[in-house]
Design a protein around this nucleic acid. Sequence first.
DNA 1: ACCGTTGGTTCGTTCATTGAACCCACGGCT
DNA 2: AGCCGTGGGTTCAATGAACGAACCAACGGT
Lengths: 175, 175
Amino acid sequence: MALGKDYVTQECSIASALEVVGERWTLLVVRDALYGVRRYNDFLVHLGIPRAVLSARLRTLTEAGILEKRRYQESPPRDEYVVTDRGIALWPALRALAVWGREHLMDRRLRYFRHAECGTELGSYGECPACGTVVPVADVLLTPGPGLDPDPADPVSRALLKPKRLLEPLETDHV
Amino acid sequence: MALGKDYVTQECSIASALEVVGERWTLLVVRDALYGVRRYNDFLVHLGIPRAVLSARLRTLTEAGILEKRRYQESPPRDEYVVTDRGIALWPALRALAVWGREHLMDRRLRYFRHAECGTELGSYGECPACGTVVPVADVLLTPGPGLDPDPADPVSRALLKPKRLLEPLETDHV
DNA sequence: ACCGTTGGTTCGTTCATTGAACCCACGGCT
DNA sequence: AGCCGTGGGTTCAATGAACGAACCAACGGT
């Protein structure tokens, strides 16, 4: 729905992008999707977001082609939300925000993003300094840093304590 | 205000960044500041934002060290808002959002971002493909594209029809 | 027959955004 | 002196979005 009528007059691709992903919670949902979160309940407990808002965001992100709703079992019918190529293309923007936040707001390292092939930490625009290439999202390895709570309450945060690649589906312990 | 209390539990530098710049209008104010907008009235007419919201955003951005309020004349006292190094550091994030919006939402080119030294259009992470270096913000030349309205209503948009470097103060015709 | 899980919707309260109106300090004009 | 214009705001009522608690529904298991 968006910020809509006001942003439309902006003639600016930044404004257009923010119309789609600029609402409260939206970019955090996309972040979680890139981290491998796919199920409604996992988004819910990890984000601490009101259910109504989560439903609305999942719907608009699906309509925008950033997530795809996919039936993963019949009977009982269960759906999951998987990030699409268009959503994966938001990685550089999320990465840039993370770098800015880390350098200007944080006093400790929460996570490291590494090139899965060689273990080198990514540079500021997502490149591998050792290999000299921009690392595709699927080859980014997410590893915990020293500032992270070692015993978090929710199962999603617990699952994220293990190193894992982006996009790889998250294994929570509700199995 | 901020998105505050909910985002705080996130242990994530993206969430921290969005606490500061994730509210409605905030990133567009920063974009305008990078484009050289400095005066209250210029932000107002260019963004079409309610005055109360603009005042609030300018205040929180100043408190966050992203803008700096600077007296540019006494009697009558007049202030302008100048983007700081911390604000300039948001350029990669805005750039990444612009690239995503352009590729996934726009059907026409509104603006080109070029390396001022050589005129080459910037690559997707803000580098100059010809020179092989990441271009500093002050050396980015903003030039109009074919999709841009050639006769916009507000003076700020009119001033942005001329090629200009980022950060360079905008010359509107209210002089 | 009942309970638990997943994935929602509904609803009343609180909070943010909007747009219009108002304010004030000053300079300049007549 | 009185008045108008400009820049940079604040105040206020009405609307819209977010919050969180409660409810709902389809199914499997016991």
